[in-house]
């Protein structure tokens, strides 16, 4: 049945009148996603290609029954936008915005948890349940419906690996970009738990990178709780310590957060780690037969 989003999801796009917001809102709708509302304060009452715009998320929830929010607002206003969605009762809040201050995310993370809201991102490409719904900026052409759950800290690398799967005839249940920031709303484990309970998902691909210890935690969790095959990839073996590699969260601090340590932890938990995206495709093909 895919996870987090499907054909029944009702999506509001916060920041819909911006360039990115309108472009992707329409792309997501073209894919078949129910994009039923947009929010831009002060522009309520307008429409974007037939999608009604509201001044507040609460207005969109009341009029259109939205349950999922997609946030494109600039970094300095993004935490406020998340709070507005959380407080309006939206269940899944997906934030694409890059560059949000980490102290803002500390508070948003704990507020969302306390309210029982699932936060995806920030600094992420969103998520896609192929054939059902696309919420975010993921290019749909490299995905196809199937049985592999994909969870990743990186956008383009997710597309690359989905491409490796799809060209081998392997489809995906849902691909979730959890984001490249040091503090993100959902961790690998949060997503793995859902893949574990999802009937459509037969195997999982986890795409990690340097920084933090979420891959290590996910490895230990999967060994204990997940009875589906897991294949992993880790980027950043050649990254020097102390340098931020593009993503705010991709940094080796002292001796912590190296790709080598993550690979070791994953392999110790019985998870195969591909040496490049292409090998990930081969390993998944092997695991499914």
């Amino acid at each position: 049945m895919a996870i987090l989003i499907d054909e029944s999801s009702r999506v509001v796009v916060q920041g819909i009148t911006g360039r990115e917001g309108s472009f992707h809102a329409l792309r997501n709708r073209d894919y078949g996603t129910q994009v039923v509302a947009g929010v831009t304060p002060g522009k309520g009452g307008r429409q974007v290609e037939g999608i009604p715009v509201f001044d507040t998320v609460r207005g969109a929830v009341e009029a259109e029954g939205v349950d999922t929010s997609l946030i494109f607002v600039p970094a300095r206003f993004a935490a406020d936008a998340m709070y507005e969605a959380i407080d309006a009762g939206v269940g899944v809040v997906v934030t694409i915005t890059e560059g949000i201050p980490v102290h803002d995310m500390l508070r948003a993370y704990h507020h969302a948890r306390a309210q029982g809201v699932t936060l995806i991102g920030p600094n992420c490409p969103g998520l896609i349940s192929p054939g059902r719904a696309n919420v975010g900026i993921i290019p749909t052409s490299v995905f196809k419906q199937g049985g592999v759950g994909l969870v990743s800290r990186s956008g383009t690398l997710t597309y690359q690996i989905a491409h490796e799967l799809t060209r081998r005839g392997i489809g995906q249940s849902t691909a979730v970009g959890i984001g490249g920031d040091p503090i993100v709303g959902s961790s690998f484990i949060d997503v793995l738990e859902r893949f574990g309970a999802d009937e459509q998902t037969e195997a999982v691909v986890l795409v990690g990178e340097i920084g933090g210890s979420e891959e290590e935690a996910a490895a230990a969790w999967a060994q204990e709780h997940l009875d589906k095959p897991v294949v992993a990839y880790v980027a950043g073996f050649t990254a020097p310590p102390g340098k931020q590699m593009g993503h705010a969260g991709a940094i080796i601090s002292g001796s912590a957060g190296t790709a080598q340590a993550k690979q070791q932890a994953l392999e110790a938990a019985g998870i195969r780690v591909g040496k490049d995206p292409s090998e990930v495709g081969e390993l998944v093909a092997g695991a499914l037969c």
Partner: peptide, 28 residues
């Protein structure tokens, strides 16, 4: 978005994860 390393292969790509992966593939 650039980080200086000390080799000979200049690398550029789109997306932080893909570029990190590219560095690794060059090393491989």
């Amino acid at each position: 978005t650039y980080v200086k390393l000390d080799g000979e292969v200049g690398v550029l790509g789109n997306g932080a994860g893909l570029v990190m992966s590219t560095l690794d593939v060059v090393a491989n």
